[in-house]
């Protein structure tokens, strides 16, 4: 309940934040604080320097229509995203997924950038980022670079954001097909025991393009390529959804914890994948 001591910084620019990170080895960025502060209160994290992004909010908190994609500042809160008509209309999977994060108070403070940079294997947003083929804009002292979702998540609390880098923007391609995020909440924490995001387009009675991603099941969110392959171009039926969903954990060693063992988690992933495919089809 009582974080250990740290030196507090509140930079006024991204560049200043990066300089602070480079100058102070044991430093952490804090955005909404809902991933970091709980661990600091338990003293599981004891950074010597805390770099508060609060003064960058006016800079990095936005949802912009960029024609073919939506640009979302990394400090945009879940609530801003879930209530944005632009996101609801053109990136419904993201709006729906972030509406499943935590609770109302958490969504008021938690930020999309903070969450995906934290890459909790049981977090919801990575599923939507993967399924929507988003691109992340990362800044360092050397300039900006962009990273595709498929390269962004790199395992247990690991992302492409390196030392001295800040996640600045998330670019989500506009998508007018059907989508659905299906989640099984841990009864205590509310995190995903498993969560599956599906985006698909219809081609008559057939599935056109499809992306399927899974969170909560492995050490990081992943694209379920086997499911996608089994669906692409096929005539939709509930039986197809079920047989394709059976590939949801192909090649994955599902996580185990005291609540759910690997077999149960795997089953959840398949069940949720099936539900998500059907729901996405129905709203396509």
């Amino acid at each position: 309940m009582y974080p250990a001591k740290f030196t507090y910084h509140a930079p006024w620019s991204v560049e200043e934040a990066i300089t602070l990170m480079n100058e102070n080895e044991d430093s952490k960025l804090i955005a909404g604080g809902h991933s970091l502060l709980p661990t600091m209160k338990m003293r599981l994290a004891t950074p010597a320097h805390l770099i508060d992004m609060k003064n960058l909010r006016s800079l990095l908190s936005y949802i912009h229509d960029k024609g073919d994609h939506i640009a979302i500042g990394s400090l945009t809160t879940y609530h801003q995203i879930e209530s944005s008509s632009l996101v609801k209309q053109a990136a419904a999977i993201l709006a729906q997924t972030v509406s499943e994060v935590g609770d109302m108070q958490v969504r008021n403070m938690g930020t999309l950038g903070g969450s995906i940079a934290h890459a909790d294997p049981a977090g919801d947003p990575p599923a939507a980022i993967l399924a929507s083929n988003a691109t992340m804009v990362i800044q360092s002292s050397g300039g900006e670079r962009t990273v595709a979702a498929s390269d962004f998540f790199q395992g247990f609390f690991e992302t492409a954001v390196g030392a001295g880098e800040i996640l600045k923007e998330i670019r989500v391609p506009k998508f007018s097909g059907g989508s659905s995020y299906q989640k099984f909440k841990h009864p205590a924490s509310g995190y995903a025991v498993a969560g599956v995001a599906v985006c698909l387009t219809k081609n008559g009675g057939n599935i056109g393009g499809v992306s399927v991603s899974v969170t909560g099941v492995s050490d990081g969110a992943y694209r379920a390529n086997g499911v996608e392959a089994a669906l692409t171009g096929q005539a939709f039926s509930e039986a197809l959804a079920a047989s394709a969903a059976a590939h949801a954990i192909d090649g994955i060693d599902a996580l185990e914890d005291p609540f759910a063992d690997a077999a149960y988690r795997g089953q959840l992933a398949k069940t949720l994948a099936k539900r998500a495919i059907i729901a996405a089809w129905n709203n396509a």
């Binding site: 507090y8 109302m104 108070q105 008021n108 403070m109």
Partner: peptide
């Protein structure tokens, strides 16, 4: 905005 004041510095 409703927030949890134990999770804000």
């Amino acid at each position: 905005n409703a927030v949890k004041s134990c999770t804000v510095l």
